[in-house]
Design a protein around this nucleic acid. Structure first.
Lengths: 315, 315
DNA sequence: GTGAAAGCGCTAACAA
DNA sequence: TTGTTAGCGCTTTCAC
């Protein structure tokens, strides 16, 4: 029995006599043989591993998507290498080069904004790439992103439905973050459709962190009498705002309304606030699926997917 | 110039003429040559990758440690492969076997309780292993765990210091989770030292999830008049309890006290509740360090480290 | 101090 | 249908 025959059986090649196949299988079972993935990778030019680049592994935004990616890829026998870039492009580049020399099967960057250097490193890596939530014109890679415009729209609308007219929007840095700009756009659209004018004091410039949520709430809720609501661009600012409200003894839905334009962490998904956001885990799954397709059909046309399904929660 | 010479330069081998070394370096620079990690792995029998097995990638407990692990390993040129087992042992075993055939440099399981099958798979993997927070007698692997007893003790003590006597403990499943048992032990010890008898209705059996926090709070806080406090085994039960309290219009430190025996997620680290817990990120770093030592000195004696530093927060 | 040769464990092309 | 051969890109002897 030669190596090749065994190889053929292991890889389910067609030209093997059923009887031989059986004999090999038995031996494999008996000896507990497991093929060396490394050696195989050298030949085939592909290690069944996928690099996923996140900006902050402690941020639920990334771990939720990661959960989806992992589940899908693991099913297909791929392992997930997580790289936490801390949003530093230089380090992203290093990790991408590593993926190249390891002949990784693919790369999924999801740090939001890709610099030119990162783009170039990705191209030079010769790896299949799927950009996740990287809103950016590009001619090179498949990409997928959530409907953050819809999230902002739905969240705002839910507040309008409850009769709120004075709805503040705590925005993110719209210049740096396309996602947060999209959410703001959704907010404005919903307001416009409802015929509620948005004065500029209603859109409060935040930084997506808790502290700004707290400060902005201080500015907006002071002296309010229950008719105002806040539409937070993201979860952290909402936490900050709620913290202020609680400190002031304000009760949600009695003294103010609250909605968020993204999915909060899992353990927050049945809280008292409204939220609407792209289903991150599903996007993760879809991204992994897209990557698998690209791996199997390298010449397939490049696709750019807007993933519409929103997780809308109305307590 | 032969392959061997280049190899020697790349690997900083001693026997190379400085002049030659220089020439090679220049060529490497110019051509942007990067050694093939896979091919190297085949020879040396080691891929610079470490498998980290978590129970739930969306749980801050794991991601905090992961952040520390990643930072330390990346510094030394290792990549981190994250496997989310969903607490299923069978799947852990599969990932361990994969690590073996990929000749991973090491494995860090941190799912808490390792089954015998997992232990065996780990042994058969021939990989350096560091158990993180897996409280379990074992003769085979290095291990490191936090001082959860101290966490329970400190959290309880902080409540006692504030004058609370009636302190409920929302416990976890002490049979399955050694960590939660340790926290409970710390609680009991602090109470005993303070001379406060612990009646059995004060230790409430929870399941470490939010729902049980809510239900137990309902049972305990009903009719309380501000003199009772809760010492939660973990963060999620605290969230549940706070949710109940808020619903009832109860205000923390006015109507009840609250402490947790673990670090909450980062964005919760300056909240109003007390917490005391092992510094997860630091433990992660220490675990990675331990693994690196094991990799470099395979014959070093096995160590078992209790990592004492606690993050104690007293608002 | 350097080069030539062997070989890691597999797959792919070709020959039988 | 099976076996033989070459070779993936490196490191590691062992001569020179």
């Amino acid at each position: 029995m030669s190596k090749s025959t065994v190889s053929r059986v292991i890889n389910n090649a067609p030209n093997v006599k059923p009887e031989t196949r059986e004999r090999v299988m038995q031996a494999v079972q008996k000896l507990g043989y497991q093929p060396d993935i490394l050696a195989r990778g050298m030949i085939t030019g592909m290690l069944p591993m996928v690099l996923v680049i996140v900006g902050d592994i402690q941020n639920h935004f990334f771990t939720q998507a990661l959960a989806g990616i992992e589940a899908t890829l693991e099913e297909q026998g791929f392992m997930v290498v997580v790289f936490d870039s801390g949003y530093e492009h230089e380090r992203e580049v290093t990790s991408i080069q590593m993926a190249k020399t390891c002949r990784f099967a693919g790369i999924i960057p999801m740090t939001g904004f890709a610099s030119d250097k990162v783009t170039q490193a990705l191209r030079e890596s010769d790896c299949p790439v799927v950009l996740l939530n990287c809103h950016r014109e590009n001619r090179f890679f498949d990409q997928i992103f959530g409907d953050d415009y819809g999230a902002g729209y739905s969240a705002t609308n839910a507040l309008l439905q409850r009769g709120y007219q004075k709805i503040y929007h705590f925005s993110g840095n719209s210049v740096e973050s396309f996602i947060s700009a999209e959410r703001e756009r959704g907010y404005r659209q919903a307001m416009e459709e409802a015929g509620v004018p948005v004065t500029e004091d209603m859109v409060c410039q935040g930084n997506l962190r808790q502290d700004s949520g707290f400060l902005l709430a201080q500015r907006c809720l002071e002296g309010e009498t229950g008719k105002a609501a806040i539409c937070c661009n993201n979860f952290l600012m909402c936490l900050g705002a709620m913290s202020y409200a609680q400190q002031r003894g304000m009760v949600m839905w009695k003294d103010y309304g609250m909605a968020i334009c993204e999915q909060p962490p899992v353990f927050y998904q049945d809280s008292e606030f409204i939220y609407a956001g792209p289903k991150l885990q599903e996007i993760g799954k879809a991204a992994a699926q897209l990557l698998l397709e690209r791996i199997n059909q390298p010449d397939k046309e490049r696709t750019s997917i807007r993933f519409s399904p929103l997780d809308v929660y109305l307590p």
